[in-house]
Design a protein around this nucleic acid. Structure first.
Lengths: 118, 118
DNA sequence: CTGAATGTGTACTGTGTAGTATATAGTACA
DNA sequence: TGTACTATATACTACACAGTACACATTCAG
C-alpha cells in the first residue's frame, strides 16, 4: 500500500502548482478521472497506487516519465509486457543477460542498436 | 479466461504421460499443489490460468520453458518485471528500441553482450 | 462575512483472482 | 464384480483491487 509513489506524485503536483493553480488536488483528480478523496489517499500513501490507465494520465498531466511512475507503483507498462510476451524466450534471455550490467553498458547497447545497421 | 494455455499444458502433459503414468491430471495436480478439479478446468480453458507460482512449478514438472508458459497465460515473470522496475528508463528504452526488430537482430545483441567485453 | 474551493475521513461497492470442497461418472484390471 | 484410479461438474469462498459517495473541517478571495 506504500512506497514512494504517493509522495512523488504529491511533490510533482505541488511543484507544477506553483505556476498553475489548476494543479489543485481536486482539479487534477477531475482531469485524470478519479474522485478527489481517492487521489488524496493515493498521494498520502493510504491507498495503493491506481490502475495503469490512471497512472498514465497522471504522468501526462504532470509531465513525468510514465515508466518511472509505473515503476514506483510496482508495475510495468502493459505495452512493454506485450513485447516480452510475443517473443518470451528472446526477450527473457536478453533481459536476464543485461540484468546485472552497469547502466553505461546497457546504454551502449541501446545506442549501438539505434545507430548501427541492424 | 481462455487462450492456448490450457491446451498447451494438456498436450504437454499427455506427451510426458506416454512414458510416465505419474503424469495423470490428479498426480500432477498434487505435485504442483492444486486440486485436480482446478487443474482440469485450467487445462480445458474453463478457468483462467493459475498464479505465477503454480505456473513455474508446472513448467518445472513438464520440462517446459517457464517464460513461454507464462506468456501463454498472459503474464510476464516477476523477476523480469523487477529488472525493469529497478531501472525503468533504461530498460523501457531498450525494449521499445528492439520491439520491432526481427529475431535475428535481437539474438545478435544477446550474443554480442554474452561474448564481448562489456 | 460569506461562499467557493481545498484537502481529508469514513463507509461502502462491484469485479476479479485464485483457488477449495464435494459429488458424480467413466475406465481398467484382477 | 468391486475397488481403485481417472477426469469432470457444481457450488462456494476469502481476499485483493480499484475505486465511489458524501459529509466534514479548513482556508482564502472578494
Amino acid at each position: 500500500m506504500n512506497s514512494g509513489f504517493g509522495r512523488y506524485v504529491r511533490d510533482a503536483r505541488e511543484r507544477r502548482r506553483e505556476g498553475d493553480p489548476s494543479f489543485s488536488l481536486r482539479q487534477l483528480a477531475q482531469r485524470i478521472g478519479v474522485e478527489p478523496s481517492f487521489l488524496s489517499k493515493v498521494e498520502r500513501g493510504e491507498s495503493a497506487p491506481p490502475s495503469e490507465e490512471k497512472i498514465l494520465r497522471l504522468a501526462r498531466e504532470l509531465g513525468e516519465d510514465s515508466d518511472v511512475l509505473l515503476a514506483l507503483a510496482g508495475k510495468v507498462s502493459m505495452d512493454l509486457q506485450e513485447v516480452i510476451r510475443k517473443r518470451p524466450e528472446l526477450f527473457a534471455g536478453l533481459i536476464r543477460q543485461l540484468k546485472d550490467m552497469p547502466d553505461h553498458a546497457v546504454l551502449r547497447v541501446v545506442r549501438e542498436v539505434r545507430d548501427g545497421e541492424w
